[in-house]
């Protein structure tokens, strides 16, 4: 579909995200050093450089529907090498939060993993790798993923069946509840 730039409604959102991330979008001169060093770029549908440019244009919809914002590993290689110090991981992260609010999710499994992880924290106060992987495998339909490692892990006592839990679980839960009620930090 034809894209009419000056009718784009994402500009305000993009500007807000950029401000929160302390990024001046106009500084990006599209050199591509970010994309060149990004370990995940091979799987991105939009290069990190293109995310910055789309935000500068105000096309947040394309950004929020992209896979790249979900696949970003927050490794910070891009910003470490960026000539203009543009905090791309922050742009990715904040775009991802906005995408979630609007129900966009181009890489379902990443969201699923994070959701389950968050719930194990709510449940036990600590992460539970076995439970996490188990529920994730069911939820993602990848029942056999990493299953070959399980007997070995048990045999070598790498994981144990018992749970590690926080005593004051209510404290952790109340912290999470308060943060969720307050929404994402704006």
């Amino acid at each position: 579909m034809e894209k009419i730039l000056n009718r784009d409604e994402g500009r305000l959102l993009a500007e807000r995200i950029a401000k929160e991330a302390d990024v001046k979008l106009h500084e990006c001169y599209q050199c591509g050093k970010c994309s060149a060093g990004c370990p995940m770029a091979g799987s991105f549908d939009l290069m990190p450089r293109q995310i910055v440019h789309l935000m500068h244009l105000g096309d947040m919809e394309t950004v929020m529907k992209s896979k790249s914002i979900w696949l970003c590993a927050s490794c910070h290689t891009c910003v470490e090498r960026c000539p203009h110090d543009i905090d791309i991981p922050a742009l990715m992260e904040k775009s991802r939060m906005e995408a979630q609010k609007r129900g966009y999710c181009a890489v379902r499994n990443v969201k699923l993993f994070n959701d389950i992880f968050t719930e194990t924290i709510r449940g036990f106060g600590k992460s539970q790798e076995v439970i996490l992987e188990g529920i994730y495998n069911v939820g993602s339909g990848r029942l056999l993923q990493d299953i070959n490692h399980v007997p070995e892990m048990l045999q070598k006592e790498i994981v144990r069946p018992e749970l590690n839990q926080v005593r004051n679980k209510d404290h952790v839960r109340s912290i999470m509840k308060k943060c969720e009620e307050g929404g994402a930090l704006n």
Partner: peptide, 21 residues
């Protein structure tokens, strides 16, 4: 068209990573 992000050596070759923007 792109700035090089990293240059390193593997064996006899220099590996140059950039983006064709």
């Amino acid at each position: 068209r792109g700035r090089v992000s990293k240059i390193y050596q593997e064996g006899e070759k220099l590996i140059v990573k950039g983006e064709d923007s």
